[in-house]
Amino acid sequence: MIWRNIASNFLTLAIVLLLALAGAIAWGKHQFSGPGPSEVAQCVQIAPGASLNAVSQQLAAQGAVSSAYIFRAGADYLDKSRDLKFGSYLVEPNASMNDIVNVITAGGPSTCGTQVILLVGVRGNNVLLRDMNPETGAFEEMARFDPASGDEPEAIAAAQQKPDARMRITVAEGVTSWQIAEALKQVDFLSGDIDDVPAEGSLAPDTYAVEKGAGRVELLAEMAARQSVILEQAWEERPFGLPYETPEEALIMASIVEKETGLAQERAQVASVFVNRLEEGMRLQTDPTVIYGVTEGRSVLNRGLRRSELNQRTAYNTYQIDGLPPTPIANPGREAIRAALNPADTDFLFFVADGSGGHAFARTLDEHNANVARWREIEAQRGQETNTPVQDGG
């Protein structure tokens, strides 16, 4: 009888323990899969070679998870404890532990944390330091400087030393190859010498993620490879009958379109003007090509063209030569290339600035002269001296 009672009590205890264990497991699963404790976005940084234990403790300290132990147990159960990927990852508010495990083991580009960005622009360059505000989930500018000045802020210098800092190069459309090469020389998070400036037009304006110490020559090669793919694809998809014999000629036209207008909606119309002029046997008469002949793509003119420069015959003076100049005059972006190879169907032969940031297009010289007169009136009202040629293509 005594043994029967002992067995009965043991069985009861075992059942209670099993029920408690089942309840604990169910609670743990709910904690692992349910909404997390953080009411704001979190930037989770995974250091190279970090262990799951260290990461779980870090997440608990940040308030991203309620229990380091449950986080580790869940990651082990999913067989992802060895799949941590180095980087900085944005975790949404109230993300579950399961969501966080998936984010930090999937890999891919970092989505938050410190960014040091070289902005390569037509009129100058800037190095920008950005960091994510966890409360808003948005990147905020922390510091900025002109690398040509050499006065690097301490915040940017310190950021470059952080193991999780991400470096980016952003190249604007219309920048010349010389400007890009010079800009890459101005930042010390890249390495290696640039002996030769790449061919004009051969580099794709885009954003490039780089590791600290990445080679400048290798980066230029990546830019060239991207541009080659963009041009090849656009060339293959071009309509029949365009006045280009080679992809290089289309690239030259794209660079002119890029420099003539900053309005996306105008690119195809501007391209149509120059295509129509080529088909009519007219000279292109576009200022940006003349400017390139003066500056060789190594500076910004910052003034109007002189009459002597417009009258001087050079390989890039499209007021004096027939057809296209010998090379591109800048690095055109994808959309300018697309416009050059897919011009609008118009019979426009002229255009001139209209005072709104865009252009007035014309079919005849009389229409164009009227548009030029209106533009000269606008310039006069603004107190600007005009050098706009009467038959200016742009």
Rank of each mutant, 00 (worst) to 15 (best):
S66G: 15
P134W: 09
E377I: 12
K185N: 15
L128E: 15
R334C: 12
S356R: 04
S110C: 00
I169F: 00
A7P: 09
V229H: 09
L242N: 07
E379G: 02
M167T: 04
G137F: 02
G394E: 08
L78P: 02
L219W: 02
N9M: 15
L13Q: 00
A165Y: 02
E377S: 13
G262M: 06
S56K: 05
T364Q: 06
A148Q: 11
L365P: 11
C43L: 01
Q265I: 14
T318H: 01
G137K: 00
P205D: 14
L324K: 13
V229L: 11
T289N: 05
A199C: 08
G241E: 05
A254D: 13
T327V: 02
Q161F: 03
A60R: 13
V300R: 10
R226N: 12
E377C: 08
A234G: 10
T327G: 02
W178A: 15
G34V: 05
P109S: 11
V116L: 10
A172S: 12
L18S: 09
D79F: 12
N125L: 01
L263C: 04
L52Y: 01
R226F: 05
N126C: 11
V171S: 13
P389V: 03
A165W: 03
T327Q: 03
R298L: 01
D392G: 15
G262V: 08
G74L: 04
F189E: 08
S33G: 11
T386H: 00
M282P: 09
T289Q: 04
A339S: 08
M282N: 07
S272D: 04
V65R: 09
P343F: 04
N387E: 07
D196I: 11
L119T: 11
L118M: 08
T207E: 14
R226I: 09
V16F: 14
Q233V: 09
Q45T: 15
S51D: 10
S356P: 05
S51E: 09
K162A: 14
K80H: 04
C112P: 03
V290E: 05
R382Y: 04
V352C: 05
R166I: 14
E335Q: 15
E222P: 03
E218V: 01
R283W: 08
R123V: 10
N53T: 15
L129F: 07
Q160N: 07
Q58T: 09
Q320D: 06
S51Y: 03
